[in-house]
Computed example of a mutant assay.
Amino acid sequence: MAVEVRPATRFADVATMLGPRKDPDATVCWCLSHRVDSATNKSLVGRERGEYVRRLCRRKVPPGVLAYDDGEVAGWAGIAPRADLPVARSTKIDAVDDLPVWSIFCVRVRPGFRGRGISLRLVEGAVELARSQGAPAVEAVPVDNQGKKVDLTMAFVGTRGLFESAGFTNVADTRSVTAGFPRVVMRLPLG
């Protein structure tokens, strides 16, 4: 398997991972639900969501990373400075400290590519993107599923085990629950 992880600068590839499957006017997540504030998220409908992501892909700092398996788009991880994300204002997920960490908020692997370790490669690639931008640490708030199966629809936050495999450690509990599992703050210092 030749998996390569690169910054998400090609909109067509991001659309393969995040866009609507059939109806281009459908209002799907586009990985904006955890990137933008609630009012902006609600105001973007149909194709506007994709156009917003297109603009993100043109920025100096891309909105995440993509995994390619033998050249085919296989996965996505969204990452940004925590201060720029809704999680920074969460009433259920407290900041651990004032360190300007970056946060991985979504990890997705396309059907047909799952079970090959691509999620781990995406996390590692997201960490490298944050490192290249001078981030002092990277955080994630995955579910602590204790090895139990997580519904794929809600698995986008990742699992504690995935982030432990990438060298992250649990630094805090939260009051947030996803798919019936508690979420924890995992951190990887980059210093």
Rank of each mutant, 00 (worst) to 15 (best):
V61K: 11
F113E: 02
G64A: 13
R47I: 11
V73A: 01
R108M: 15
I93V: 15
P63D: 05
P81D: 03
G50D: 04
D69N: 09
L85I: 13
D97Y: 02
G117Q: 04
G78N: 09
I104W: 05
R47S: 07
A77F: 01
A83T: 10
V109I: 06
S43W: 08
R110H: 14
G112D: 06
G78T: 08
P86V: 06
P63Y: 10
R82H: 04
G112S: 07
I118A: 02
L99N: 07
P100L: 00
D69R: 13
R108Y: 15
D98H: 06
V107C: 04
A83M: 09
A88N: 14
V65I: 07
S90Q: 05
A80D: 15
A80L: 12
G112A: 08
R108V: 14
R82T: 09
D84Q: 13
E51N: 13
V107A: 04
G75I: 03
W76K: 01
E51W: 11
V109R: 02
A83P: 03
D94A: 14
P100W: 03
P111E: 02
G117D: 03
P81C: 04
G71L: 10
I118C: 01
G64I: 10
R82V: 05
V73E: 00
R55H: 12
R114M: 07
K92R: 14
L85F: 13
V61G: 06
R89E: 09
R58E: 13
C106A: 10
C106Q: 07
G50W: 07
I104G: 02
V45P: 01
G115Y: 00
V107K: 01
P62T: 14
P100A: 04
E72G: 10
R58Y: 01
S103G: 11
F105Q: 04
V61M: 10
A74Q: 08
G112P: 06
R116L: 14
V61Y: 09
W102C: 05
S43G: 12
D97T: 00
G64T: 11
A67S: 12
S103N: 15
R58L: 14
G46A: 09
R58K: 13
G117K: 02
R110L: 15
D84S: 14
E51C: 04
R47C: 05
D84F: 05
A80C: 10
E48K: 14
F105V: 08
R47T: 15
V45N: 03
P111N: 03
D97K: 02
K60N: 12
Y52M: 10
G75V: 01
P111C: 07
C106T: 10
R49K: 12
W76Y: 06
P100M: 09
E51Y: 11
D97L: 00
